[in-house]
Amino acid sequence: MTDVRDYLREWAMPHVLCPGCAHGTILRAFLEAVKRLELDPDKLAMVAGIGCSSRLIGYVDFCTLHATHGRAPAFATGLKLARPDMTVAVVTGDGDGLAIGGNHLIHAARRNVDLTVLLLNNSIYGMTGGQAAPTSPAGSVASTAPAGTAEAPFDACKLLEGAGASFVARVMAVDPIMSTNVMVEALSHRGFSFVEVISDCPEYFGRYNALGSGAEMLAWMARKEAGVAAALANKRYVNHVPTASDTSGLATGVFHREERPVFTGLSTQAAR
């Protein structure tokens, strides 16, 4: 295996995602992690729900289960319990994973099933045409929030850590190398590993909120990195010329990691 493209169902390419959508970049980072770990494609299953992110699994030559909206963690739980010999990775989106599927996600985390969940957060519902998502920043415009959403967004990593995920990390699509590194760690982790990947949606989130093309949104993403954002927030501007600069930041890296009994479906009573 010299090229991650060898993992693709090349006949299915090019994929359906829009120009500049970084979901493909994330898939590539994931495949790099698969390659680095030398995972057996026959023993690697990817489970996804509904949405743009979930479409990704159609293009990889593994065992791929395209489940219903939000339920991928449940499908994956069943699959993993049935096939403990397989590596099971879930690809979900912010709407899929945190709205309709939020319950499944937190419970899979609580159980500490040995799954790796990649949540591709593009702050909006892409597949259905740009509706507000549970991760849409307050004030951001969506087709169902034409004047800007009045709701507060989820911090997926805090949510999942609270839910008991034994590995929680956040990376950005603009950082494919770090993304791969973190995904290697997540896939190597025994137990429920959660990686939020900040992605972009130039077609809807970018367009509605004047954030530019995919390339520009990636740059915007890099600038949102916590250290950068904090440093920027600290600085002053030229006297008399006001700037409204977004100084909110987003931390990246592995936030939480613990060794904790992995749920295998065998009750502790029976194990005794």
Partner: peptide, 10 residues
């Protein structure tokens, strides 16, 4: 803010 590369580009 020219230190905000993305915003500057945009």
């Amino acid at each position: 803010d020219p230190h905000d590369l993305a915003a500057t580009y945009r």
